[in-house]
Amino acid sequence: MKWTSALAIFTLFWVFSAFFVLPFHGRRSSDDDEPLVAGQDRGAPARFRPGRVVLQMTIVAAVAFVLYFTAYVNGWADPDVLTGRA
Rank of each mutant, 00 (worst) to 15 (best):
R47W: 13
N74G: 03
W14D: 03
F13W: 10
V15M: 13
V73P: 04
V37Y: 05
R28A: 08
A38F: 08
P23G: 02
R47C: 04
A64F: 11
V37F: 05
A86Y: 09
L12T: 04
S29K: 08
V53G: 01
G75V: 03
V15E: 04
D31T: 03
F16S: 08
A6C: 12
V73M: 12
D78R: 08
R42Y: 14
V63M: 08
F48R: 04
T83C: 06
A38D: 12
P23V: 01
F69T: 00
V73F: 11
A71F: 09
T11Q: 13
V53L: 10
L12C: 04
A62H: 04
Y72V: 13
F20P: 01
G43P: 00
G84T: 06
A46R: 06
D41F: 05
A62G: 12
L67H: 08
P35F: 15
L7N: 06
Y68R: 02
V60F: 11
A62S: 15
I59E: 14
R49P: 02
E34R: 04
S30Y: 02
D80L: 14
G75L: 03
Y72T: 10
V21D: 01
F16W: 10
P35W: 14
V21T: 07
Y72C: 07
G39M: 01
R85E: 03
L22Q: 12
A18E: 06
G26N: 10
V81Y: 05
L82K: 09
Y68Q: 06
V37K: 05
R28D: 11
I9S: 01
F10K: 12
V81W: 06
A38Q: 07
Q40N: 02
F20K: 14
Y68N: 02
V63E: 05
A18K: 08
T58M: 15
A18I: 05
V73E: 13
P79S: 08
A38N: 04
R47T: 11
M1F: 14
R42H: 15
